[in-house]
Amino acid sequence: MSAEDPIERLVALDRALAPSSDTVERVRRRLERRAFQTPLRARLRVWPMLAFAAGAVVMALAMRPAVAPVAPAILDARAPTVPTPVPETKPVCARLETGTHPLQPAACHEADGVVVTAILPSMLDRQGSTLELMRGESMFEVKPRPHDPLRVRAGEVEIVVLGTKFIVQHDLYGGHVFLIEGRITVRMGSGDVQELGPGQQLSWSGPSEPPSPKSKVRKAPKASPPRDERELASILEEIHQLRRAKQFGRAVERLRAVEHGSWSPRAQQVLSYEIGTLLDRQLHDVAAACEHWAKHQRRFPGGRFSGPVADAMQRLACESGSRGGNFPQPRD
């Protein structure tokens, strides 16, 4: 490598590079001062986090719905502070005390994780974790209670519940239980035990005969259910199987295919309610569920599921315009 080689000359230049001792000492002193400032710098590093936390708190307070007016209290201390009405997201239920209680339609009672909403005028008796529906029709929503099963009696029928949602109807001539969610065990008066899945229902006949001559006519269908009931039970069983296979979309399609057949009003309500429950609870399609619940309310104003449907629409925050009453007349 010759002395004229540019790389050799670069190396020579690089070796000749050296800072003066003044410069080295000057930088050293500056760094020393800087090092003693580090504790303050370390504290400053926390400031962005504190600022972020403060901003988050301010945002949370700003987005929280106003509970009490502040401005009037500041402007005029003599003015009484009237709390701003807060829109309720869930109806407040009355406490269900021990003893017998008459329940009015749409009124709900709550105790120990059990919410009872009357669909028809009902009479309910509570003794600890045992409820007895003496007459009427009510919906029971039971929060999970794996160690303390709730027992709901309707005549000679006893329903054992670990956490679910179902409707019980009972009167002198019999009754039925319709399971909306979860799983329940029904012990019949004869000692038979049946387990119900979502969408299934079980009927029973009462101890008394109806006083009118129609009782015989009424009893006959119990012994031999009409074609309508048999087909409904068959379809509900089919839907139950689809639910178990988690084929919720197919279940909705199946129900919609049969929904507009020649069904009794009660069966139409059950099928419509099934569709809405699938859209709401299983498919979580809020828009479709809202649309369906609104349609359900139009088709069956004051129907047997009007309470649960109203609750579902409130829970899903369906637009107020889609609620029953404000809708145009049903097209179907």
Binding site: L13, D14, L17, A18, P19, T23, V24, V27, R28, L31, E32, A35, F36, T38, P39, A42
Partner: peptide, 26 residues
């Protein structure tokens, strides 16, 4: 601790400043 920082930095500077200065001067 933070009090040791100045001493540690001084040691590092005395050991490495030539190499860092050479790069910067180059």
């Amino acid at each position: 601790s933070e009090e040791d920082l100045a001493r540690v930095l001084d040691g590092i500077y005395r050991k490495h400043h030539r190499a860092v200065f050479r790069l910067a001067l180059r």
